[in-house]
Simulated assay, not measured.
Amino acid sequence: MALFDSIRSAAGARSAEIDAGLRAHMNKVYGTMSVGTLITFLAAWAIAGLSVTSDPANAVAQLSSDSYLTNFGYAIYASPLKWVIMFAPLAFVFFGFGAAVNRLSAAGVQVVFYAFAALMGLSISSIFVTFTGESIAQVFLVTSIAFAGLSLVGYTTKKDLSGMGSFLIMGLIGLIVASVVNIFLASSAMAFAISVIGVLIFAGLTAYDTQRIKNDYLQMAHAGDQEWLGKAAVMGALSLYLDFINMFMMLLQLLGNRE
């Protein structure tokens, strides 16, 4: 907020133009993120539908008294392919997006983001097999309300949140390592702790990333590089999208009702 005020003061007559540009930029960030989130949940729902059947004649494994895994479901949930699907989004974020931003146009980077959102849908599709649809909807609503509030705090606060960024990133790295370790330990207590800490970390990242996206725009808006601003909007959408999806997944582990 302090950076925003100082830039507006220096801009003088251009302050209204900066305000309008910032609103348009943030609208694009939230709009792109929302479309990506919709793609993710539609993809997850569709993939889960192809993975489960009520007809035992077309099944290869039984889930419950009246639901079975299809060949497709067995391949993505029970075969070694599940490990590739599980870690593919993480690899995509670390190795795919950097190359896309450097080589593609802003429109191309946006297409890559939507492709990533579909891949994430494949990765989390098991939630529609594991949890009830009602609990998924309820946790999604809770996450949406929390995300909106936290993002609003990050956008409007006058406090500089940059100092908490390195702390949150270190916590995120520790969370990823603990999650990987717990895949093999399968500790319910550790899973509960990871979910609680994860909610707190991604709550903080939501506010932090919102302020960072706003400040990044204000620092570069004067250059008038629309191609860079277009890519920055997509990368900002990616950051907030990851905050939302991960916070949702952590809350679902805590609050969701299992089938």
Score class of each variant (00 low, 15 high):
residue 1 M to T: 07
residue 2 A to H: 14
residue 4 F to S: 14
residue 6 S to D: 12
residue 7 I to D: 10
residue 8 R to V: 06
residue 12 G to W: 04
residue 13 A to Y: 15
residue 15 S to K: 15
residue 16 A to L: 14
residue 17 E to G: 03
residue 19 D to R: 00
residue 19 D to V: 00
residue 27 N to H: 11
residue 28 K to S: 10
residue 29 V to G: 10
residue 32 T to C: 06
residue 35 V to K: 06
residue 35 V to H: 04
residue 37 T to C: 12
residue 37 T to Y: 14
residue 46 A to F: 10
residue 49 G to H: 11
residue 52 V to L: 05
residue 53 T to F: 05
residue 56 P to T: 01
residue 57 A to L: 07
residue 58 N to E: 09
residue 58 N to S: 14
residue 60 V to E: 05
residue 61 A to Y: 14
residue 62 Q to L: 06
residue 62 Q to G: 03
residue 64 S to V: 08
residue 66 D to L: 08
residue 67 S to F: 02
residue 73 G to T: 11
residue 73 G to C: 11
residue 74 Y to R: 12
residue 76 I to V: 14
residue 77 Y to I: 08
residue 82 K to N: 10
residue 82 K to L: 12
residue 83 W to E: 02
residue 83 W to S: 02
residue 85 I to Y: 13
residue 88 A to V: 02
residue 94 F to C: 01
residue 100 A to L: 13
residue 101 V to T: 14
residue 104 L to W: 13
residue 105 S to M: 12
residue 107 A to D: 11
residue 110 Q to D: 04
residue 112 V to E: 04
residue 113 F to E: 08
residue 116 F to E: 10
residue 118 A to F: 08
residue 118 A to D: 01
residue 118 A to M: 13
residue 119 L to D: 05
residue 119 L to Y: 03
residue 120 M to I: 04
residue 120 M to N: 13
residue 121 G to C: 12
residue 121 G to I: 06
residue 123 S to Y: 06
residue 126 S to F: 15
residue 126 S to G: 08
residue 128 F to V: 08
residue 129 V to E: 02
residue 129 V to C: 04
residue 129 V to Q: 03
residue 129 V to N: 05
residue 132 T to H: 07
residue 132 T to I: 10
residue 132 T to Q: 06
residue 134 E to C: 05
residue 134 E to T: 15
residue 136 I to F: 10
residue 136 I to H: 00
residue 138 Q to I: 03
residue 140 F to R: 06
residue 143 T to A: 12
residue 147 F to C: 11
residue 150 L to E: 09
residue 154 G to C: 00
residue 155 Y to F: 04
residue 156 T to W: 02
residue 156 T to P: 05
residue 157 T to S: 12
residue 158 K to H: 12
residue 159 K to H: 03
residue 166 S to N: 13
residue 168 L to M: 15
residue 170 M to E: 15
residue 170 M to I: 15
residue 171 G to C: 07
residue 172 L to R: 08
residue 174 G to T: 10
residue 178 A to C: 03
residue 184 F to R: 11
residue 186 A to S: 15
residue 187 S to F: 07
residue 187 S to I: 11
residue 189 A to D: 07
residue 189 A to H: 08
residue 189 A to T: 13
residue 190 M to N: 10
residue 192 F to M: 03
residue 193 A to W: 01
residue 195 S to W: 00
residue 196 V to D: 08
residue 197 I to V: 09
residue 201 I to C: 04
residue 211 Q to Y: 01
residue 212 R to Y: 00
residue 213 I to K: 11
residue 215 N to E: 15
residue 216 D to Y: 09
residue 217 Y to Q: 04
residue 218 L to V: 09
residue 219 Q to M: 12
residue 223 A to W: 05
residue 232 A to G: 01
residue 232 A to F: 00
residue 234 V to F: 01
residue 235 M to V: 05
residue 236 G to A: 06
residue 238 L to N: 08
residue 239 S to L: 08
residue 241 Y to P: 01
residue 242 L to H: 11
residue 246 N to T: 11
residue 248 F to T: 14
residue 248 F to N: 12
residue 253 Q to R: 12
residue 256 G to W: 03
residue 257 N to L: 04
